[in-house]
């Protein structure tokens, strides 16, 4: 009798409609770049996010645990750093790419690629977004927000004067470190100075944000107008602890700042497994 009940339960479970998964992946374009000097060679597999939550994703990344071609060759790059979260471009969900080793020339397909995808869905957790209204009037004071406090993150919109002073202090510190590191330090210092000189130019309309984020929780910072519409920026960059949001026009005084935080509830992790991905 007990066996019959178990059998019925199994049948019912099999017959019940399966719940669509919130996040899944399918493979997109596959590019096998093969070179006899091995420079920039590798297999790139594009992943497309699927599922009902894909459209809400503000960021995603995929990590590979297993990748093997049909000859049995391991395609996982050893010692690779975990990828950064990708942001969506335009209306779609973020584009993900897996960076693998070249399969064997005689391989016809990748037998298996499995791993996990992490998707940032800030709509799932009210604590994933911290807001600062009329932030331009609160320059040089850390933004007070329970969400930031909970994430042990300090975010401050700084004035140009503060930025310049802190940059100078930082340069002096780096110079001292370079001096103690000898010639190698001097070379590194010269290159970082050159890099910052090229990209670290501040425009008069740019918004400068200092982010103290030891737990790497801050996903992004955006500026919104009074009507709640995002104000398009002309790009952004990070220089040390500073995030520089570039604007071609003056940001209105009543604009607000939104800080997106990767809280545990807002980051959804889903395993994936792709089988028999055809090679070009």
């Amino acid at each position: 009798m007990k066996l019959v009940v178990l059998g019925l339960a199994a049948l019912l479970a099999a017959a019940a409609p399966s719940k669509p998964s919130a996040i899944g992946v399918t493979s997109g374009d596959v590019t096998d770049r093969r070179r006899n000097d091995n420079t920039f060679a590798g297999l790139e597999v594009e992943l497309k996010l699927t599922g009902e939550a894909a459209g809400e994703a503000r960021g995603a990344r995929a990590t590979v645990e297993k990748a093997v071609d049909d000859t049995g060759r391991n395609l996982v790059k050893e010692g690779a750093r975990p990828p950064e979260f990708e942001k969506p471009t335009g209306q779609g969900s973020p584009g993900l790419k897996l960076d693998l080793r070249n399969p064997a020339r005689r391989a016809k397909s990748v037998r298996e690629i499995s791993g996990q995808v992490e998707v940032f869905l800030p709509d799932r957790d009210p604590a994933a977004v911290a807001s600062a209204d009329r932030f331009l009037s609160g320059m040089d004071r850390p933004i007070a927000s329970p969400a930031l406090k909970a994430s042990r993150t300090e975010v401050t919109v700084v004035s140009r004067k503060t930025y310049d002073a802190e940059k100078k202090k930082d340069e002096e510190r780096k110079k001292k470190e370079a001096e103690s590191a000898g010639v190698a330090g001097a070379v590194v210092n010269a290159f970082s100075g050159l890099f910052e000189g090229l990209f670290g130019d501040i425009g008069e309309n740019d918004v400068l944000v200092r982010v103290n984020d030891p737990g790497k929780k801050v996903f992004g910072v955006e500026v919104f107008d009074a009507a709640g519409k995002p104000i398009d920026n002309a790009g952004s960059m990070k220089v040390g602890d500073f995030w520089i949001l570039k604007f071609t026009e003056k940001v209105p005084a009543d604009a607000s700042l939104r800080i997106y935080l990767m809280t545990a509830k807002a980051v959804v992790t889903a395993p994936f497994s792709l089988k028999d991905v055809a090679l070009p």
């Binding site: 374009d29 596959v30 590019t31 096998d32 770049r33 093969r34 070179r35 006899n36 000097d37 055809a278 090679l279 070009p280």
Partner: peptide, 10 residues
């Protein structure tokens, strides 16, 4: 010299 065989489904 250098040979690159760029194979793509794109």
């Amino acid at each position: 010299g250098t040979i690159e065989d760029r194979r793509t489904t794109g």
